[in-house]
Simulated assay, not measured.
Amino acid sequence: MRTLLNIIWFVLSGFWLFLGYMLAALIMFVLIITIPWGIAAARIGVYALWPFGKTVIATPNAGLGSFLGNVLWVVLVGWWIALTHLTTGIALCITIIGIPMGIANFKLIPVALLPLGKEIVDLP
Protein backbone atom coordinates (compact mmCIF):
# COMPACT_ATOMS: atom_id res chain seq x y z
CA MET A 1 0.00 0.00 0.00
CA ARG A 2 2.88 2.39 0.82
CA THR A 3 4.33 1.88 -2.64
CA LEU A 4 1.03 2.70 -4.34
CA LEU A 5 0.55 5.81 -2.21
CA ASN A 6 4.13 6.92 -2.90
CA ILE A 7 3.61 6.52 -6.65
CA ILE A 8 0.37 8.53 -6.58
CA TRP A 9 2.04 11.14 -4.36
CA PHE A 10 5.06 11.33 -6.68
CA VAL A 11 2.91 11.89 -9.76
CA LEU A 12 0.56 14.45 -8.20
CA SER A 13 2.83 16.54 -6.00
CA GLY A 14 5.95 14.80 -4.71
CA PHE A 15 8.10 15.53 -7.73
CA TRP A 16 7.26 19.25 -7.69
CA LEU A 17 7.86 19.52 -3.94
CA PHE A 18 11.17 17.73 -4.41
CA LEU A 19 12.23 20.17 -7.13
CA GLY A 20 11.21 23.17 -5.04
CA TYR A 21 13.11 22.01 -1.98
CA MET A 22 16.16 21.10 -4.07
CA LEU A 23 16.16 24.53 -5.73
CA ALA A 24 16.03 26.13 -2.30
CA ALA A 25 18.87 23.86 -1.14
CA LEU A 26 20.97 24.77 -4.18
CA ILE A 27 20.50 28.47 -3.50
CA MET A 28 21.45 27.95 0.14
CA PHE A 29 24.57 25.99 -0.85
CA VAL A 30 25.71 28.85 -3.07
CA LEU A 31 25.31 31.33 -0.21
CA ILE A 32 27.91 29.40 1.83
CA ILE A 33 26.78 30.67 5.26
CA THR A 34 23.37 29.01 4.79
CA ILE A 35 24.73 25.50 4.06
CA PRO A 36 23.16 23.94 7.20
CA TRP A 37 19.74 25.05 6.01
CA GLY A 38 20.57 23.80 2.51
CA ILE A 39 21.27 20.35 3.94
CA ALA A 40 17.98 20.50 5.84
CA ALA A 41 16.09 21.59 2.70
CA ALA A 42 17.63 18.72 0.71
CA ARG A 43 16.63 16.27 3.47
CA ILE A 44 13.06 17.60 3.42
CA GLY A 45 13.04 17.37 -0.38
CA VAL A 46 13.93 13.68 -0.32
CA TYR A 47 11.30 13.12 2.36
CA ALA A 48 8.73 15.00 0.26
CA LEU A 49 9.55 12.76 -2.70
CA TRP A 50 8.50 9.50 -0.93
CA PRO A 51 6.76 10.36 2.39
CA PHE A 52 4.81 7.15 2.95
CA GLY A 53 6.68 4.65 5.09
CA LYS A 54 8.86 7.30 6.74
CA THR A 55 8.60 9.39 9.87
CA VAL A 56 10.40 12.29 11.53
CA ILE A 57 12.11 11.91 14.89
CA ALA A 58 14.00 14.42 17.00
CA THR A 59 17.75 13.95 17.22
CA PRO A 60 18.59 13.67 20.93
CA ASN A 61 22.04 15.24 20.61
CA ALA A 62 20.90 18.41 18.81
CA GLY A 63 22.28 21.36 20.68
CA LEU A 64 22.05 25.11 20.93
CA GLY A 65 23.10 25.54 17.30
CA SER A 66 20.07 23.60 16.09
CA PHE A 67 17.80 25.61 18.35
CA LEU A 68 19.15 28.97 17.15
CA GLY A 69 19.12 27.80 13.53
CA ASN A 70 15.50 26.70 13.89
CA VAL A 71 14.52 30.06 15.40
CA LEU A 72 16.06 31.86 12.42
CA TRP A 73 14.46 29.38 9.99
CA VAL A 74 10.98 29.84 11.52
CA VAL A 75 11.22 33.61 11.41
CA LEU A 76 12.44 33.77 7.80
CA VAL A 77 10.82 30.89 5.92
CA GLY A 78 9.57 28.05 8.11
CA TRP A 79 6.21 29.52 9.02
CA TRP A 80 5.08 30.08 5.43
CA ILE A 81 6.30 26.66 4.26
CA ALA A 82 4.40 25.02 7.13
CA LEU A 83 1.34 27.15 6.36
CA THR A 84 1.50 26.05 2.72
CA HIS A 85 1.61 22.38 3.74
CA LEU A 86 -1.29 22.98 6.15
CA THR A 87 -3.55 24.64 3.57
CA THR A 88 -2.68 22.08 0.91
CA GLY A 89 -3.37 19.25 3.36
CA ILE A 90 -6.76 20.70 4.28
CA ALA A 91 -7.66 21.12 0.61
CA LEU A 92 -6.64 17.54 -0.15
CA CYS A 93 -8.65 16.17 2.80
CA ILE A 94 -11.85 17.57 1.31
CA THR A 95 -11.96 14.66 -1.14
CA ILE A 96 -11.96 11.05 0.00
CA ILE A 97 -9.20 10.06 -2.42
CA GLY A 98 -7.05 12.99 -1.31
CA ILE A 99 -7.13 12.15 2.42
CA PRO A 100 -3.89 10.11 2.42
CA MET A 101 -2.17 12.88 0.45
CA GLY A 102 -3.45 15.47 2.93
CA ILE A 103 -2.12 13.42 5.82
CA ALA A 104 1.25 13.26 4.04
CA ASN A 105 1.22 17.06 3.83
CA PHE A 106 0.47 17.24 7.56
CA LYS A 107 3.45 14.93 8.20
CA LEU A 108 5.69 17.42 6.38
CA ILE A 109 4.70 20.32 8.67
CA PRO A 110 6.96 19.55 11.69
CA VAL A 111 10.08 19.07 9.60
CA ALA A 112 9.28 22.07 7.38
CA LEU A 113 8.74 24.26 10.44
CA LEU A 114 11.78 23.13 12.47
CA PRO A 115 14.18 21.20 10.18
CA LEU A 116 17.37 21.26 12.23
CA GLY A 117 17.75 18.59 14.89
CA LYS A 118 15.37 16.21 13.11
CA GLU A 119 16.04 12.91 11.42
CA ILE A 120 13.90 11.14 8.83
CA VAL A 121 13.76 7.38 9.31
CA ASP A 122 11.98 4.47 7.68
CA LEU A 123 9.04 2.92 9.49
CA PRO A 124 9.39 -0.77 10.34
Rank of each mutant, 00 (worst) to 15 (best):
W9S: 15
M22R: 09
A112S: 15
A112P: 05
F18S: 06
F106T: 04
I57A: 11
G38A: 03
A40H: 01
T87H: 11
I94Q: 08
L23C: 12
I120K: 03
R43G: 03
A58C: 14
L86N: 07
V75P: 06
L17P: 07
I99E: 04
V121L: 06
G102D: 09
G53W: 10
N6Y: 08
N6M: 05
I57R: 14
G63N: 13
G98Y: 08
G38D: 00
W50E: 08
G63W: 10
P100Q: 02
W73G: 05
G14N: 06
V46Y: 06
K107S: 13
K54F: 13
K54H: 15
G45F: 01
D122A: 10
A104N: 09
A40L: 01
I57H: 08
A40V: 03
L49T: 12
I97H: 08
N70K: 08
I109E: 06
L114I: 02
T34G: 02
N61V: 10
G89Q: 04
V71T: 09
I33N: 01
T84P: 11
V111R: 00
I8A: 15
A40D: 00
G78V: 05
G38W: 00
N70P: 09
I96E: 06
L26H: 04
V77S: 15
G69V: 03
A62L: 13
L64Q: 11
K107Y: 08
P100D: 00
I103A: 10
L12G: 13
I39H: 01
I8H: 13
M28S: 00
G63Q: 15
A24Y: 02
F18P: 05
G53E: 08
I32K: 00
P60F: 00
V77A: 15
P110W: 01
L92K: 14
V46P: 04
G20Q: 04
G20C: 04
V56Y: 01
I99A: 07
W16H: 11
I90E: 06
A25W: 01
W73K: 06
A41V: 03
A82H: 02
L17D: 12
K118A: 08
I44M: 05
